[in-house]
Amino acid sequence: MTSERISAHAAGTWKLGDTTVGRVGFGTMRLTGDAAFHLGRPSDRDRSIAVLRKAVDLGVDHIDTAAFYFSSLRSANELLNSALAPYPDDLLIAAKVGPVRHRSGEWGTSARPEELRGHVEENLRQLGRDHLDLVYLRRMGQDSIAEHFGALAELRQAGLVRHLGISAVESRHLAEAQAIAPVVGVQNRYGLGHRSPGTEDLLRLCGEQGIAFVPFYAIAGDSGPRGATAAHDAAVLAAARAHEASPAQIRLAWTLAQGPHVLAIPGTGDPEHLTENVAAGSLRLTAGELDRLNEAHGRAG
């Protein structure tokens, strides 16, 4: 596919909270090194900073990050701060809180509700900001999110957070959160070839209520945090040939085709992959291609 006049707004826009953003954003998880969530080989700092600046140059105005995105030498938030501060007025930065990750790289248990203020303040410190545009509560397996989400709602009232979202949830958690404070976004693992149980219903529910649905690992398939999958079936490869696109671009285009409220946040530390990901927003799959992709991956059209 052509890469001329690439823009992150080519897929359209969505109002996330009170900010209109392009439907193709950027996730910072892979900026810090070659092993997501593991202390593998750290990234090249200058290259990571260049990727962030190029993303903004391509029109990306929605960046997803977290204080627990780090390697032995790199912090995603510090890279963001170094690359983009003072931040553009139209840039929305979303952060996640809830998981506990020690400096050794090991994971702890879920944060207690009273610890979430410290998580928010650490993101603020690293980013060099006095408030967070959007904070997602990442559910860590607990049955109810009411107490944790209530703690974030208090921080919203205090002005540390402007908008709230939830992540790794079921439809019942959305209703639970909405009884406490408005929810502007939901983040769940979702992509061609991998959808958590109940996520299709949650995707539909978000669309009906005007809530952004922001899938993570959208191009990873079963690879998940290890990166984009290399296992592409015939339907993906056929669509890639037809559009002169990469299989990853087809997977992103399929994700965006699931509804105007679906926002993609693919992440990479490679400038060329960044350009590919943003360009995928202009790719339009035909109804026949979508049917064949859905059929190949066990999903009703």
Rank of each mutant, 00 (worst) to 15 (best):
T2P: 04
E4H: 12
R5L: 09
S7C: 08
A10F: 00
A10S: 11
A11D: 01
K15D: 07
V21S: 00
V21C: 01
G22H: 00
M29N: 09
M29P: 12
R30L: 01
L31S: 13
G33H: 04
G33T: 12
L39D: 10
D44R: 10
D44C: 10
R45A: 06
D46H: 10
D46I: 09
R47L: 07
R47H: 06
S48A: 15
I49P: 01
V51T: 03
L52I: 01
R53D: 04
R53A: 08
V56Y: 03
V60P: 00
I63Q: 11
D64Q: 05
D64E: 06
T65N: 05
F68P: 06
Y69Q: 03
Y69M: 03
Y69A: 07
S71F: 09
L73Y: 02
L73T: 15
S75T: 02
A76D: 14
N81S: 13
L84T: 11
A85N: 14
A85G: 05
A85Q: 12
P86T: 11
P86M: 13
Y87M: 01
D89M: 11
D89Q: 15
D90S: 14
D90V: 04
L92Y: 09
K96S: 10
V97A: 04
H102R: 12
G105W: 02
E106A: 14
G108E: 11
S110C: 04
L116S: 08
L116G: 14
L116W: 04
R117N: 05
N123H: 05
R125E: 08
R125W: 13
G128N: 09
D130P: 12
L134H: 06
R138G: 07
R138H: 15
R139Y: 06
R139H: 13
M140P: 12
Q142N: 02
Q142I: 05
I145D: 05
H148F: 03
A151S: 11
A151W: 11
L152Q: 14
L155S: 03
L155C: 07
R156C: 13
A158N: 08
G159H: 13
G159E: 12
V161H: 00
R162F: 00
H163N: 10
A168H: 13
S171L: 14
E176L: 01
G185E: 04
G185H: 09
S196F: 15
S196V: 09
G198W: 01
T199L: 13
E200G: 02
E200I: 10
L202T: 05
R204L: 08
L205K: 13
G210K: 01
G210W: 00
A212N: 06
V214H: 12
V214A: 14
I219M: 15
A220V: 02
G227W: 08
A228P: 12
A230R: 10
A230N: 12
L237M: 05
A239G: 14
A242P: 09
R251Q: 11
L252T: 03
W254T: 11
T255F: 15
A257W: 04
Q258L: 09
Q258V: 08
G259F: 00
P260T: 11
A264Y: 02
P266Y: 00
P271W: 05
E272D: 10
E276M: 04
N277D: 03
A279N: 06
A280T: 01
A280I: 00
L283T: 02
T286L: 03
L290D: 10
N294R: 15
H297W: 14
G301F: 08
G301D: 09
